[in-house]
Design a protein around this nucleic acid. Structure first.
Length: 328
DNA sequence: AAAACGGTCAACCGCAAGCAA
DNA sequence: CTTGCTTGCGGTTGACCGTTT
């Protein structure tokens, strides 16, 4: 990580504050005269860290003034979250962490904060950067689409007549048949398979899985048998607001391991740790017993897709309920 | 030696959700 | 119900730095 040199950082920030460079752009967050932007100085870091040590996180809007900082609250929060927090881990991403990021990304897509929440000491920004600079390139070099985790070239599924003018278009085009799954469950296709799709505006998380009708029933039982009663909707999406605990009242520190998100992470953990997903066995058995061995669990295909097991399923679970709240 | 180039990552921005008034 | 405020998220930018030409 590059540490801002005090002199250049200060000079840059001051230049911006003085109205030069990027200051010409509209900057609603720091629009007030005199607020600094750009890299943080060690002095500013110290002020912020000392203040939070005494008063705790939160109340970001008023924090800068109270801490004696010429920064906007947003900037302070970001600096604390991504750099100054004691729990922030420094140094290279380990192979284990990299593996985990890949798996979680396959499950969650660009939900950087959720991914970060499962990787102790790593921030969403760090993971996002690592993904964009390392992992996505790595996947591309392996012929894998970093967005879908599927093979990059798939001429059959791409309509070449349409220009890929945007990310959304590109992703939409990669969908063979974007099927909206009603609350009744999976929709049957002509091939007898079903698509678990919960298509966000940007197209993330679409799935062309070959889930058979009735699998939702099995999925529900899988979920129910583990106590995750509300985690999946009938459309195969997460039913819990994954961001639930991130909207806290004034002054409450975010605890990514508490509240509603705890359930989600328990669920993720179960996927990660589930013995079934370590042992590749046949999923598609007709008689699914809720107390059956994990290897027959109906979520196996989802997890298998998530964790790279070959089952014929290529689904990626889409938290559509989440997306209703997250309708960007 | 220096200019050009490309990669990395801290920081910024716009937007949206949650909540209180 | 509406409005305003606060906070958090994901996408993007641009300064910095190492490598190549």
């Amino acid at each position: 990580m590059r540490k801002p040199t005090s002199s250049t950082a200060t000079a840059a920030a001051e230049a911006v504050a003085a109205g030069g460079g990027a200051a010409a752009k509209s900057t609603p967050c720091c629009i007030k005269v005199g607020l600094k932007r750009g890299p943080w100085t060690p002095e500013e870091d110290e002020l912020l860290a000392n203040y939070i040590k005494k008063e705790g996180e939160g109340r970001w809007r008023t924090l800068p003034k109270k801490a004696g900082l010429l920064r906007c609250g947003k900037s302070c929060r970001l600096r604390w979250m991504n750099y100054l927090r004691p729990s922030v881990k420094r140094g290279q991403i380990s192979p284990d962490e990299e593996d985990l990021i890949l798996r979680l990304h396959r499950l969650l897509g660009n939900r950087w904060s959720l991914i970060a929440g499962r990787i102790p000491g790593r921030t969403d920004n760090e993971i996002k950067n690592y993904w964009n600079t390392h992992l996505s390139k790595k996947l591309i070099s392996q012929g894998i689409d970093p967005r879908t985790h599927k093979p990059l070239i798939n001429p059959q599924s791409v309509d070449q007549s349409k220009p890929s003018s945007s990310k959304a278009n590109h992703l939409q085009e990669s969908l063979k048949e974007p099927i909206k799954i009603a609350s009744s469950g999976l929709e049957e296709t002509t091939s007898g398979s079903a698509h678990i799709i919960s298509n966000k505006e940007n197209g993330y998380f679409q799935s062309n899985s070959n889930a058979h009708l009735g699998d939702q029933y099995h999925t529900d039982h899988f979920i129910a048998s583990r106590g995750y009663t509300s985690l999946l909707n009938y459309d195969g999406s997460f039913g819990t607001d994954l961001r639930g605990n991130q909207r806290l009242g004034n002054g409450e520190a975010e605890d990514i391991n508490s509240g509603a998100t705890e359930d989600v992470f328990s669920f993720l953990n179960s996927l990660i740790n589930e013995e079934a997903f370590q042992q590749h066995q046949i999923f598609n058995e007709p008689n699914v017993n809720t107390s059956a061995p994990a290897s027959t669990d109906p979520l196996f295909p989802i997890a298998a897709a998530t964790f790279g097991l070959s089952t014929g399923w290529e689904s990626t679970l889409m938290p559509s309920a989440l997306d209703q709240n997250d309708s960007k």
